[in-house]
Computed example of a mutant assay.
Amino acid sequence: MAIALSTLVEEADRYLTAARIQDYCPNGLQVEGRPQVRRIVSGVTASQALLDAAVEADADVVLVHHGYFWKNENPCVVGIKQRRLKTLLNHDISLLAYHLPLDVHPEVGNNVQLARVLDLIVEGPLEPDNPRSVGLVGALAEPLAPRDFARRVHEALGREPLLIDGEGPIRRIAWCTGAAQGYIDQAVAAGVDAYLTGEVSEPTVHAARENGISFIAAGHHATERYGVQALGDYLARRFAIEHLFVDCPNPV
């Protein structure tokens, strides 16, 4: 079965309320391909490896979290940008990308999907007074020592995380997928025992140690694999089309 590209894009935009969210890149259809869609290939980032996999799979649409045309990037179509766009255009494949709308969505969002994978109980937003809050606060069903929780993360995500051990047991936890280490101050203010995100920077280590909380950097790519899969599955069910997730390994 095939559906119109315009119908797929309209539904994805509506479902994620993409127009309401101010972002660092355009959300939605970034590159237009053939007008009919039978197969979606999804991935975290629209890298050349993912595009090549989409060509091999005879995809009509590539659906990603990290697309193109970021603010302040060089707008010239040269180098890897030229090669990536050439691949899409030569094979008549559309690129559909959602950044912050896919982080914050309450059903298929990266943060709520990571909670499902790690068996975390969602209590509410990391910043209750911020309508654009992307992080979440919640709890573990049973307290765990930081090293035991890090082991759970390793087993669930298939990547050994960096752990700054706060020593005390983890009962309440805050998390925000991707490059959100800067939210550690909000996590401290929320009174949690641990903060989990994708990346780490040098000041984050000191902030965790001096505030007495555990910090887990589980990988930007590893923590953001699940939202795009859930969105692709939703669209596939909604329109009776095919969806294939392709995981292009990334150690960061």
Rank of each mutant, 00 (worst) to 15 (best):
residue 176 C to A: 15
residue 182 G to A: 06
residue 170 I to F: 03
residue 199 E to V: 10
residue 179 A to K: 07
residue 181 Q to C: 02
residue 210 E to G: 07
residue 175 W to L: 12
residue 189 A to P: 09
residue 169 P to F: 11
residue 166 G to A: 07
residue 223 T to P: 03
residue 232 G to D: 03
residue 233 D to A: 15
residue 207 A to P: 04
residue 228 V to Q: 03
residue 174 A to R: 04
residue 220 H to G: 08
residue 179 A to S: 14
residue 167 E to C: 00
residue 211 N to P: 04
residue 194 A to W: 02
residue 170 I to P: 00
residue 180 A to M: 12
residue 169 P to T: 09
residue 205 V to T: 00
residue 198 G to A: 13
residue 192 V to P: 01
residue 169 P to E: 11
residue 205 V to H: 01
residue 198 G to M: 13
residue 180 A to I: 07
residue 218 A to M: 08
residue 196 L to S: 03
residue 170 I to K: 00
residue 188 V to P: 02
residue 221 H to D: 13
residue 223 T to C: 07
residue 177 T to E: 07
residue 205 V to E: 01
residue 174 A to F: 09
residue 189 A to Y: 13
residue 167 E to W: 00
residue 185 D to A: 14
residue 202 E to I: 09
residue 184 I to A: 01
residue 209 R to G: 03
residue 218 A to Y: 06
residue 216 I to A: 06
residue 183 Y to K: 12
residue 214 S to Y: 07
residue 190 A to V: 08
residue 165 D to F: 03
residue 199 E to R: 11
residue 212 G to F: 15
residue 224 E to G: 03
residue 186 Q to S: 15
residue 175 W to V: 10
residue 179 A to I: 04
residue 202 E to R: 10
residue 166 G to V: 06
residue 212 G to A: 14
residue 203 P to K: 09
residue 227 G to M: 10
residue 173 I to Y: 12
residue 179 A to W: 05
residue 183 Y to V: 09
residue 170 I to A: 00
residue 165 D to K: 01
residue 181 Q to P: 00
residue 191 G to L: 07
residue 233 D to W: 07
residue 208 A to H: 10
residue 233 D to G: 06
residue 190 A to M: 14
residue 229 Q to G: 04
residue 215 F to Q: 02
residue 226 Y to L: 08
residue 228 V to S: 02
residue 194 A to H: 03
residue 173 I to L: 14
residue 194 A to V: 04
residue 193 D to W: 02
residue 177 T to P: 04
residue 196 L to Y: 05
residue 172 R to V: 07
residue 184 I to W: 02
residue 212 G to P: 11
residue 221 H to P: 08
residue 233 D to L: 11
residue 166 G to D: 06
residue 178 G to R: 00
residue 215 F to P: 00
residue 231 L to S: 02
residue 214 S to D: 07
